[in-house]
Design a protein around this nucleic acid. Structure first.
Length: 466
RNA sequence: GCCCCGUUCGUCUAGCGGCCUAGGACGCCACCCUCUCAAGGUGGUAGCACGGGUUCAAAUCCCGUACGGGGUACCA
């Protein structure tokens, strides 16, 4: 294959959603796989969609994901002269014409003519003069059909009589998507158009324009299966929470998100799902992309994210998790305990929940369920804490093994004395951390220190008594 | 309504006529490990939408039906 040229061409809507990111990724994968170019183009033909803020909302997430582009961003709003020339060419050649009818007008005419709703070429022969508020429509051939050879879907044929003469220039003079699309893809030498299936229906229109403009062979088309919500509807900004920025804010790693996205609509031939992006690049092919829509399962995303988090070194982990670490954290302590936290979280935002008790003076709040289970149910809780306080007082907090054997020793001693199994770790953990579950206690206690440990045991004992 | 697309375990997928008594992953369940919770290990659960063809042979090819989705704008 000659080096392909692909493009990601989002409309600036104020944010980037995962469906768009998936389209960008598949374009990027294809370009990287075949040594081609990945072009970024902002489709802002609609005047209301222009602003730096909107552009940042596209560019920033792409950078975060690491989907680097080779050209652009190009802006359609800055290329108006090209579209105007193309429109003029179509009008001059009789392939397009002016129309001054409103939607209400064409509805009325359709009713009068006893035709189905819609535009039926009313202005084709009316010789309307150009002017303010006048649109340009493309004259769709009455006969025949347009065929798309889609790389993913195969042959798709659409009869011309099902396509109405569509608008290619708005009343305010701005070009419409179909037109700008054809002009830009041609001008930028795009060889493969890879995008969501929701655009499949627009492809015949673009192709018709392409041919009318004398552009020669069209790019190859590949329409990706849609990403859908749990009700299997296309992901939409309004009803689905899918902004890329939210994934970032919740502590997903970009590499994990990309890996997960690559698995939607495509699967590696060897079934190894979690792997470095370069391995995905080298195995990717458009022909292997499937046709059915895919639900983006957050549970699986979390699994993948956890795998990537576990793969980080402690230093990398602390750097990545920094925004979510507890207040007043101690870098050395977090690094020392990082491995234990990493295997327990599926998003970075969960990190603080496992560490916060290490960086406060005292436990202000106990998890009541854990307290009830460890402190009340086992009647020996106060005895355990009392014994523990006595023993821990006398030992060094440098070695986790020492603390463990002290605690287990207390448990064993009391088990014998009371004739029932007495667990020492549970009450100690609740006393010291406020919770019933957490990272391994003994090493953590070496960092908490003797003083704070003992004062928390004392606090728990007085709470027990009171 | 009309046009277009799709349909393999709950979910994401492998499968592109015989290797399929349908493989993997997530989830779920059980067991192992473990004086917490995880992680890890082992095993299990669950699926070719339906009906006709074609063929010696169909999850794989064809037709139809059902269901789902997308589009039908002076959004992209």
């Amino acid at each position: 294959m000659q080096a392909p040229r692909v493009r990601f061409a989002p409309a600036p809507t104020g944010y980037l959603h995962v469906g768009s990111a998936r389209s960008a990724l598949f374009n990027w994968l294809f370009a990287r796989r075949h040594g081609g170019a990945f072009v970024l183009r902002v489709e802002d033909t609609d005047e209301s969609k222009k602003s730096q803020e909107f552009v940042d909302a596209i560019v920033e997430p792409l950078r975060w994901l690491g989907l680097d582009w080779d050209e652009g961003p190009y802006f359609q709003s800055q290329r108006k002269h090209l579209y105007e020339a193309a429109i003029q060419k179509l009008v001059d050649g009789g392939r397009a014409y002016y129309c001054d009818l409103s939607a209400a007008d064409s509805q009325r005419l359709a009713a009068e003519a006893g035709l189905r709703e819609g535009y039926h070429g009313w202005s084709r022969d009316r010789d309307v003069a150009d002017g303010d508020g006048v649109v340009v429509r493309f004259r769709v051939p009455d006969e025949g059909s347009t065929v798309i050879e889609d790389l993913i879907r195969g042959r798709v044929e659409v009869a011309h009589d099902t396509i109405a003469d569509f608008v290619i220039r708005r009343g305010d003079g701005s070009p419409v998507f179909f037109l700008a699309n054809a002009v830009d893809d041609h001008d930028m030498g795009i060889s493969h158009v890879i995008r969501g299936e929701d655009l499949l229906n627009t492809t015949p229109k673009v192709k018709l324009l392409w041919e009318a403009l004398g552009y020669g062979p069209t790019p190859a088309y590949a329409h990706l299966p849609l990403l859908v919500n749990e009700r299997r509807q296309k992901l939409a900004k309004r009803r689905d929470s899918v902004a890329l920025s939210e994934f970032k804010a919740e502590g997903y790693l970009p590499e994990a998100l990309l890996n997960a996205l690559a698995l939607l609509g495509w699967g590696p031939p060897d079934a190894v799902e979690i792997r470095p992006m370069e391995e995905i690049v080298s195995r990717f092919s458009l022909e292997a992309v499937n046709k059915g829509s895919a639900y983006f399962d957050l549970v699986k995303l979390k699994h993948i994210n956890n795998a990537y988090i576990k793969a980080l070194t402690p230093v990398q982990f602390v750097a990545a998790a920094e925004p979510w670490l507890p207040e007043h954290y101690d870098l050395a302590v977090v690094e020392a305990l990082a491995v234990e936290v990493q295997q327990r979280i599926s998003t970075l935002s969960e990190a603080a929940g496992w560490l916060d008790w290490l960086f406060v003076d005292e436990i202000s709040e106990y998890d009541e369920k854990s307290w009830a289970k460890a402190m009340v149910k086992g009647r020996a809780a106060d005895r355990v804490l009392a014994e523990l306080a006595g023993v821990l007082e006398t030992v060094s907090f440098d070695d986790p093994a020492t603390l463990e054997s002290c605690a287990l020793g207390v448990g064993n001693r009391l088990s014998e004395e009371l004739g029932a199994r007495v667990m020492s770790q549970a009450p100690l953990r609740v006393a010291v951390t406020g919770r019933g579950a957490g990272i391994p206690l003994w090493e953590a206690l070496t960092h908490l220190g003797k003083e704070r440990t003992l004062s928390r045991v004392a606090a728990a004992r007085s709470r027990l008594a009171g």
